[in-house]
Amino acid sequence: MIDSLDASTVQYLQAAALLLVGLYGIIARSHLLRKLMAMNILQVAVIVFFIALSTKFGATVPVVPAAATAGPIDPAAYVNPLPHALMLTAIVVSVSTTGVALALLIRIRRRFGTLNEPALLDRLRE
């Protein structure tokens, strides 16, 4: 459990809160477009969490200045580049999946005339 409320705990709790908000939207909202927005919030929660994992105290951005390339490079001086690279791909994937989802929503709306989930289920049962 949490002993004290310091900056790092706050950062984890922020990611957890975003995750819960996203999940709540996906489960409880009945409009499909709102579910999609909630899915994006959930993705942001994951991205925030990973970026929080990449930080190091006393370290700078993972771009080695030209002056420092001659000698050995100290790993403690630069933040972890791996989560940055992974989240870069995750952001682009989230944009393209959002595009696919919007296309599907447009198609559903064309076919059934509504995006409200209960109404959609009624239309499907007919």
């Binding site: 944009v95 595009g99 919007l102 296309a103 447009i106 709306r109 064309r110 076919r111 059934f112 005339g113």
Partner: peptide, 20 residues
């Protein structure tokens, strides 16, 4: 690839008409 996919998604979503 990224230029193409963003342009394609934008174009396809904008051109879609709600002709239900």
């Amino acid at each position: 690839a990224v230029t193409g996919v963003l342009e394609l998604i934008f174009d396809v979503l904008v051109e879609a008409r709600d002709d239900a």
